[in-house]
């Protein structure tokens, strides 16, 4: 009976077409501008005490995120949340954990002015950049203007970030029918869907296209004060609601979650299962899911090999 019923049950649930799409291969990036942005991204000149660069917390040589639980910025001040990856950030529907920035340009402005991060202001940045012969020449080449403006610097950084995509992951290739996943990886993906992970982790970034609650089933540490969605909507229901993080290159972006509380991917999968399914999943299932997640590791962004 079960044998007859099972297919019936599966039919009753309507599945959509594959809910994950590969990272587009076309670059569409202004290379010169991106390289200028890269230079700025690595330049500590953009922080008040010349201690901090963008790259300080977004390790683009690895996963584009911070290996520390919270980042340290100006005069060693600590951040209030785990730094998310800058890779593929262009595909995020909003920026920051709580989505307070609508796009990268808005986002880039944040850390630079944050007293705990770069602790700078547009005017000082313009002064510093304009005092530099190197930047004067490079900005001249890109923008054709002799005076460097703050907005131009932000745009260059954003262009660099636009170039920070990691295409051609094994999973993307699988989606494009370029290769077969191993049976275990395939199984992991299936479990990923069957357990409902896919309901939030979908789209090109496998996440980062909606706000969801951490702990739909079991309340996640409620007495913390991370900058969550409630801070924006002023709705207490939105406690622990965050932008769903991307799962691309997830193997490179430990520690996990907004609080950086989990060091390994397997543990992260188990934690998610506990709080959002109310159930402990099996070691075997967790391992398979991790195998699937590993296929999401993409190529190093091409811009990293350019100077």
């Amino acid at each position: 009976m079960l044998k007859y019923l099972t297919p019936l049950l599966i039919i009753t649930i309507v599945y959509a077409s594959e809910p994950i799409s590969p990272i587009p291969l076309e670059r569409g990036v202004h290379i010169k501008k991106a390289l200028l942005g890269k230079e700025l991204f690595f330049d500590t000149m953009l922080s008040k005490d010349s201690s901090t660069a963008c790259v300080s917390c977004h390790d683009v040589s690895s996963g584009g995120a911070d290996a520390r639980v919270v980042s340290e910025g100006f005069e060693g001040k600590k951040g209030n949340i785990q730094a998310p990856t800058v890779f593929n950030a262009k595909y995020n529907f909003k920026q920051f954990w709580n989505g307070r920035a609508n796009n990268l340009l808005e986002q880039a402005d944040g850390p630079i002015n944050n007293p705990a991060e770069h602790n700078m202001n547009p005017k000082s940045i313009e002064e510093r950049l304009n005092a530099s012969a190197k930047y004067k020449q490079k900005f001249q080449e890109v923008y054709g203007t002799s005076k460097i403006e703050y907005q131009q610097a932000l745009e260059a950084i954003v262009e660099f970030e636009n170039a920070l995509t990691t295409p051609n992951s094994r999973f993307d290739k699988f989606l494009r029918n370029e290769l077969q996943l191993t049976s275990q990886e395939q199984e992991g993906y299936t479990i990923f869907k069957q357990l409902g992970c896919i309901t939030c982790h979908n789209g090109v970034n496998i996440g980062a296209n909606s706000f969801q609650k951490m702990g739909t089933f079991i309340e996640y540490n409620s007495n913390t004060s991370y900058p969550d969605r409630a801070e924006i909507t002023k709705n207490s229901e939105h406690k622990n609601v965050f932008k769903v993080p991307t799962l691309r290159n997830i193997t490179l972006t430990a520690p996990y979650f907004h609080d950086g509380s989990v060091k390994t991917l397997k543990e992260a999968v188990q934690v998610m299962s506990k709080y959002n399914l109310g159930q402990q999943i099996s070691e075997e299932e967790a391992d398979k899911i991790v195998l699937f997640l590993e296929t999401l590791k993409g190529e190093k962004p091409f811009v990293m090999d350019m100077f």
């Binding site: 049950l9 869907k193 357990l195 939030c200 909606s210 609650k213 739909t216």
Partner: peptide
């Protein structure tokens, strides 16, 4: 748009559970 955000949260939770339950039973 706010409602849609809300809808997405409700929807994701419901679908998550429905999908999970299907597998759970199966």
């Amino acid at each position: 748009f706010e409602n849609i955000e809300e809808f997405q949260m409700l929807n994701a939770g419901i679908k998550n559970s429905l999908v999970f339950l299907t597998r759970h039973v199966e």
